[in-house]
Design a protein around this nucleic acid. Structure first.
Length: 485
DNA sequence: ATGTGC
């Protein structure tokens, strides 16, 4: 997981460690890492802070190059990185979004009794497993032709709902209503479309999952009320992204950007930061294609939700409406967006890159669904397999300190190869089973790679994030059944 | 993350 980092880190305020801009040639702003004294030690055991400093050299970066408490090494930008650029003078970088464009999470509620779900958990998870294809390279139940796929790329979840996959209400409960409007499928390569067509409506592999959970504990009654969450409630969390389609879009435009840095004479400390001015043909094309990747990912989660609802209907012989399977919210944690933020005392548009970071807008923002607007934006933090997940709430503090952003999960501490050598699949299943968790995975390999022992403690990451004011803990969710890729 | 590795 990279090498130790021994550069300068100054504790500049509570929960903020600063890399001064004098640290490295070309840094235009400071680097900020949100952490506590303990977490910063583990962050230093990885070279990711160097990537925070590298991002601070990018043209048009505003304020500081920021990183969330779950920061770790990534392609060019650190995972857990947040950077805002000026739309006129700044750049956009595919490395600041990541390969899995709009990897994200949605949470669905139910009115089912815990005991009833536990009694049926094996059948439920197995049924979901049958209804939702999973694993690397797996194909969808849908067969989309090129024009249908393009509609999904251009219109996102609107396409899915119009075609009968989901409820009208779902649209209101998704970040950007499940559609980024600058999407233009003409900017997506044939190769990306060919990879995307057979995969829309598949879970994928790695840390992606579908999990049946219980609301273990409420930490903030007022905010939980606004979200209709109560202790003991059964929920389902879906964590996946844009599959081979987003991956190909990222690959294509990283190539484009490697040429663009020469054309625009952009000097970079790391080629993986390849970028182009936001206001350039290359920048606009990437933005349009990346928006398609985001729409694809939302549509993917939407199709999966539809089949999850059908799976519940099969097992419990009730309609999804009767089981009140309403979506709570859907967030992205790998995306770049144009948003209005306060800079030097006045509001302006900025291009916010969030890579392994979740939007966490405070109360009142127009982007938040009316239902939640007075309290803030719901934030969903997926745990690693078999551990807790969290519902949090965006804050005014995050608007001021981190462009309205927060963490996205636990973060690995062990490489996939390391985890494969160390853990045994049967032992993992047994350990989880002793904790009352039924797990079904498309492969033993993924099961080992995703062992809870390969991840940081999500409880700690979330606690530090809460203490730093980036988002507030609302509820802790614990798993009953897990489906992995 | 990924038709996983040049």
């Amino acid at each position: 997981m990279g090498r130790n980092w021994n550069g300068p880190l100054k504790k500049s305020s509570d929960y903020v460690y600063t890399i001064p801009k004098g640290y490295k040639k070309g840094m235009k702003v400071d680097g900020w890492i949100f952490a506590d004294d303990e977490l910063i030690k583990s962050i230093r055991q990885d070279n990711a802070p160097e990537q925070v400093a590298n991002v601070a050299t990018l043209p048009g970066v505003i304020g500081a190059s920021k990183a969330m408490p779950d920061i770790h090494w990534g392609y060019g930008f650190p995972i857990g990185g947040v950077a805002a650029m000026d739309p006129e003078e700044g750049v956009i970088s595919p490395g600041g979004v990541g390969y899995d464009i709009n990897c994200g999470v949605r949470l669905v509620k139910t009115n089912l009794e815990e005991e009833k779900v536990r009694d049926n958990i094996k059948g439920l998870v197995n049924t979901i497993f049958d209804n939702v294809p999973a694993g690397v390279g797996r194909k969808s139940r849908l067969k989309l032709d090129q024009s249908e796929l393009e509609e999904a790329l251009d219109y996102g979840v609107e396409w899915a709902v119009e075609n009968g996959y989901g409820w009208e209400q779902d649209l209101e409960r998704i970040e950007n209503n499940g559609r980024l409007e600058s999407a233009d499928s003409e900017k997506v390569s044939k190769k990306a479309k060919d990879r995307g067509s057979p995969q829309l409506g598949t879970l994928g592999g790695g840390n992606h999952f579908i999990e049946i959970q219980k609301v273990e504990k409420i930490f903030n009654e007022e905010m939980a009320d606004a979200m209709d969450l109560e202790e003991g409630m059964i929920t389902t969390m879906i964590h996946t992204g844009s599959r081979g389609c987003g991956h190909q879009i990222a690959t294509d435009y990283i190539n484009t950007m490697e040429k663009a840095i020469k054309k625009y004479d952009i000097d970079l400390p790391d080629k993986q930061l390849a970028c182009a001015p936001y206001d350039s043909p290359e920048g606009k094309d990437y933005f349009a294609a990346m928006n398609c990747g985001a729409n694809y990912a939302w549509t993917n989660r939407q199709l999966i939700l539809h089949w999850v609802r059908e799976s519940f209907e099969e097992i419990f012989n009730e309609t999804a409406e009767d089981m009140q399977m309403e979506m709570l919210y859907d967030v992205c944690h790998n995306v770049a967006k144009k948003e209005e933020h306060e800079v030097d005392g006045k509001d302006q548009d900025v291009i916010v890159h969030r890579k392994g970071a979740t939007r966490a807008f405070g109360p009142g923002r127009k982007e938040i669904p009316k239902k939640y607007r007075d309290v803030g934006q719901p934030v969903l933090i997926p745990g690693d397999m078999g551990t807790a997940s969290y519902v949090m709430m965006g804050t005014e503090t995050s608007m001021k300190r981190a462009w309205g952003s927060t963490c996205h999960g636990a973060g690995r501490v062990m490489s996939r190869t390391g985890a494969r050598k160390k853990f045994r699949a049967n032992q993992i299943r047994k350990d989880l089973s002793e904790d009352g968790i039924y797990v079904k995975s498309a492969s033993d390999k993924v099961l080992k790679e995703e062992s809870p022992g390969a991840y940081k403690d999500v409880n700690n990451v979330v606690e530090v994030t809460h203490n730093a004011g980036l988002s507030r803990i609302v509820a802790k969710l614990t798993p009953i059944g897990v489906m992995k890729g």
